[in-house]
Write a protein that binds this DNA or RNA. Structure first.
Lengths: 197, 197
DNA sequence: TCCTCAATTCGAGACGTTGCGTCTCGCCAA
DNA sequence: TTGGCGAGACGCAACGTCTCGAATTGAGGA
């Protein structure tokens, strides 16, 4: 069960080929679009065999998911900024910047679309991407609660639904990215203290 | 440009076949799932020829979009209820009921996914479905503004982004439907009057 | 130390299958 | 006479699997 039981005999996986495949997938998506992205095309562009791709990734969506993590730095700011408002702002700024990174929005659209079609990928996408993003935001809300900084009746889960709901709805249903006004409106909505002040 | 210029010569379109195709598409989607839904399968189930389907709908997604309108009553409550809160509640209750209607959530998932892949369908889906839903909610916000009932700094567009963002994020990224607690939390979020009270 | 063998990945591409969207046919209704 | 109808043949494209010989790596014997 441990790695010690598998001394890794035989030829090792080529890291160079792995990177070539991920890069080819990302570039091809921006060039021809996700529907016309094929495993065959990825392999050809990367100078690899089809079997090499199929050996390591179950679907083209999984290739793209890993390529996204490679291309765009997916770490989000969850550092303690002293106040709920400051941390929420940092998180939203990071998210907006990520969305604005070239090619990211189309790739996210494609991955979410694929997650609706393929139940297995849906699980991998949720565990490997969506839930990680949620966890980051919920950490901020929990810290605010411990700090006594959190608006009443606001739960981490609901805050995540609202924030990611807005972000994803913008990506999927509109063509608009998050701008400063959106971030300001969202912060105002979530940081109000009803019944106080 | 008017219908008078087309005296409708030749055999008329069969309404019976149209309904059979829409019903077959809706049922097949719930049975085999959207990815395995094919025009050939729809035609076979409906006892129609492939060409009959292709003649009237450009893609299977368009068939399903029309089938959705047929199966689930898509009208939303925009009647004047006297207050912003009452109208928002009625709208959210209607939306939650629609989502809970058998087969609606999977169909909505499929249509949104298809809209990410096909730019032409994307436009039809937006104009024929998404924007109509938005307009209904924005009507409510505008009436509240005229009534002096609207929270400060809340715009119809932003309210629509938040509400539909939450609904769609729930459909696409989670498996949870809107429940009463969600509706209550959303209403509280949107009806607070910061700086007043 | 050196050699041989098994294990594993690699690039390349052949293969059968599937569903696509178009086209054609004869029939039928307005 | 015009155009929708059911039925299905047709060529095309991409799928995912399989096979091939070469390259790389570790294990174990000489």
């Amino acid at each position: 069960m441990s790695s010690a039981t598998t001394p890794a005999r035989g030829r090792r996986r080529s890291e160079q080929t792995r990177l070539a495949i991920l890069t080819a997938a990302y570039e091809l998506t921006t060039e021809v679009g996700y529907p016309d992205l094929t495993i065959e095309g990825i392999a050809a562009r990367a100078g690899a065999g089809k079997q090499t791709v199929y050996r390591w990734w179950p679907t083209k969506a999984d290739v793209l998911l890993e390529a996204l993590a490679l291309k765009a730095d997916l770490k989000v700011s969850t550092a303690d900024q002293g106040s709920f408002e400051a941390e929420l702002d940092a998180f939203l700024q990071d998210s907006a910047a990520l969305m604005a990174f070239p090619g990211v929005a189309p790739v996210l659209r494609s991955l979410m679309a694929e997650a609706q079609r393929d139940a297995d990928f849906r699980r991998r996408f949720r565990d490997g991407f969506l839930l990680k993003r949620r966890a980051a935001l919920e950490t901020i809300v929990e810290r605010a609660a411990a700090r006594g900084d959190k608006p009443d009746r606001l739960t981490g889960a609901f805050a995540a639904d609202v924030v990611f709901g807005l972000i994803w709805y913008r990506i999927l249903a509109t063509e608009r990215l998050l701008d400063e006004d959106d971030i300001a409106a969202l912060e105002q909505l979530l940081t109000e203290h009803p019944g106080k002040e």
